[in-house]
Simulated assay, not measured.
Amino acid sequence: MNENVVKTCMVCGEPKEEGMTIVTEFICTSCESEMVNTKVEDERYPFFVRQLKQLWVRFHA
Score class of each variant (00 low, 15 high):
A61F: 03
Y45W: 10
F59K: 10
G13W: 06
R58H: 10
G13R: 06
M1K: 13
F47D: 04
C31P: 03
E3A: 09
F47C: 02
F59G: 05
Q51K: 15
W56C: 05
C12K: 04
M20T: 13
M35C: 11
T21H: 02
E17W: 11
C12I: 08
N2G: 10
V11R: 03
Q51V: 11
N4I: 13
V23S: 12
V5I: 14
T8F: 01
V57D: 06
E3M: 06
E17Y: 10
Q51Y: 02
G19F: 05
E14M: 15
P15S: 12
E41R: 05
I22L: 07
K16T: 13
F59Y: 12
H60E: 08
S30H: 11
K16Q: 15
H60Q: 10
P15D: 14
R44L: 09
T24W: 07
E43D: 12
K53L: 13
S33V: 06
K16G: 13
V40D: 04
M35G: 07
V49D: 02
E34A: 10
N4K: 15
R50T: 06
V23R: 11
P15C: 04
T38F: 00
V36E: 15
M20G: 04
E41S: 11
G13D: 05
N37R: 11
K16S: 15
E14S: 14
E34N: 07
C12N: 09
P46M: 02
E32F: 10
P46D: 00
T8Y: 02
F48A: 05
M35F: 14
K7V: 01
T8P: 00
Q51C: 12
C31Q: 06
R44F: 04
Q54G: 08
V49C: 09
V40E: 05
Q54Y: 04
F59V: 02
K7Y: 08
K39E: 09
D42H: 07
E3D: 10
F26P: 01
E43A: 12
A61S: 11
T24I: 09
V57R: 06
E32K: 11
F47S: 01
E41Y: 02
T38D: 05
S30V: 15
C12M: 05
F59P: 00
K53G: 07
I22H: 02
N2S: 11
P15L: 08
T24K: 14
V57M: 00
L55K: 04
T38E: 01
C12A: 09
F26M: 01
C9L: 09
K39W: 02
V49F: 04
T24P: 01
F47M: 07
S33T: 12
M20P: 00
T8V: 15
R50Q: 09
N2H: 14
C9F: 06
L55S: 01
C9I: 09
T8C: 01
H60G: 02
M20V: 13
T29M: 11
E41N: 07
K7G: 00
V36K: 15
M10E: 08
C28N: 10
I22P: 00
E3C: 01
N2I: 08
